[in-house]
Design a protein around this nucleic acid. Structure first.
Lengths: 239, 239
DNA sequence: TGAATTAACTTGTAAATACAAGTTTGGACG
DNA sequence: CGTCCAAACTTGTATTTACAAGTTAATTCA
């Protein structure tokens, strides 16, 4: 499965090792091949390998120890939504079911809940809007509201998002890569709608995450709001 | 102000540029000197400069653009508690007042709220325990409970933490550096005690952050729990 | 046998170099 | 005067080399 046209080598290596860990080739407590061995395997040099390992460290897959090696920590527990990855890759596709609540449609921007100001040209174009419910192990955990400017996304509203990664579609169909972003987290009380979808009682505390995602396409940002029932699945992060 | 004995060069450069940004030498929208210019200024080479800039990007101080340069974003808005820094350096010392609620004392471990299992030797030794209230702009925002094993920390309980950074004391007095850590975030309802200290009503949603911090001293971890009123100050992070 | 030392690993930091790719600027040419 | 294009920047990726510092294991010597 090729990911994209010209992925830099360190990302290729990163993806391979990452997959090996989530597939169980390397298990928790194992020690990865040394950096020099990885150089030989992947036909590259240490700085490249180290750049790949840096990412794995940052995302909690491995931990490094000088003089010893890279120790596999396993697939990060909890939900690593604080990282670059979307929900799908953060929790693993196995236990995640996505239910589309509001199919992608073009509508006006709803800036009421947005923590970030819109750019002029974004406001001119319409907004592609959809809502998704993420269910892990039969329990609803996330409620996603995604908004993105309707710029050069032909046929998007007719695509089927069910159990597919939004990021994957953007990358393969439109050649748009997520390159970074920022987010604000706060604790709120679930409103009626969220109560219903996340199956919680009135007055239940909810994690509200307001994100602005940056892409490889100049001036094209994704805005998303995630409501998370953190009772069962805490948000996890390493640093 | 020297920070530590032998800080690697890329960290020195990082600290300098970071200070320049928070001091306003470089302001929001400015473009940093090019990497080659920074090389000349700091008498080092691009890989070293880039490693310093990588950190600044990760913490939201700057944003880089190929072909253009490094654009200063300013001091990260909100509270960057998701990063490596402690609260003091994350929000700037100016507006932060720290009130000691429970002075450092040696007591048994209280594992009831701890999300991480204790190591054997940690349990054997006692626990240094203290509670602090962080007040920003006259509003209580954080309630910190910190626990750390009572191993080789002579005279710690008689030290004055008021308005001082815990990390600074550990680094200067005990030569202990924070090297990383992990955390879990969840939304909870404030209990009586938290309600009182954070000055919120019953049923108010609170961000609960459970952290385990790793240090340069082998096997020495800090455990801390932060209760945050995210109404005024959201938790902020870039990635 | 047992303890200390050494050698052979590991990762961490750093330099010097090269080229690719994106942006800006200014000059040549119509 | 305006347009196009090339040169001179910028950051991104990659290689090669070197040494420092921490860990492990084998070897040596008492």
């Amino acid at each position: 499965m090729r990911l994209s046209k010209n992925l830099p080598q360190y990302k290729v290596v990163y993806e391979i090792i990452r997959k090996h860990i989530s597939d169980g080739v390397y298990q928790k407590g194992d020690i990865l091949p040394s950096e020099n061995e990885l150089c030989a395997v992947h036909q590259t040099t240490r700085p490249t390998i180290r750049k790949a390992l840096d990412r794995l460290v940052h995302e909690g897959y491995i931990k490094k120890k000088q003089g010893k090696g890279s120790i596999v920590m396993g697939v990060p527990q909890g939900v690593g939504i604080l990282s670059l990855s979307g929900t799908t890759s953060a929790v693993g596709q196995e236990n995640l079911i996505t239910e589309i609540i509001v199919k992608p449609e073009i509508r006006q921007w709803d800036t009421s809940n947005l923590a970030y100001p819109l750019l002029n040209n974004e406001e001119e174009f319409g907004c592609i809007y959809f809502e998704r419910l993420r269910i892990m192990n039969k329990q609803p955990v996330f409620y996603d509201i995604t908004m993105m400017p309707n710029i050069n996304l032909r046929r998007f509203i007719s695509r089927n998002l069910e159990n597919k990664s939004l990021f994957n579609i953007l990358r393969t169909m439109y050649d748009i890569e997520i390159t970074g972003g920022e987010q604000r987290l706060m604790a709120i009380l679930a409103d009626k709608k969220i109560q219903e979808y996340l199956n919680v009682k009135e007055g239940h505390p909810i994690l509200h995450i307001n994100r602005k995602l940056e892409t490889s396409r100049e001036g094209f940002f994704l805005y998303s709001q995630v409501y998370c029932n953190s009772e069962k699945y805490a948000i996890f992060g390493t640093f």
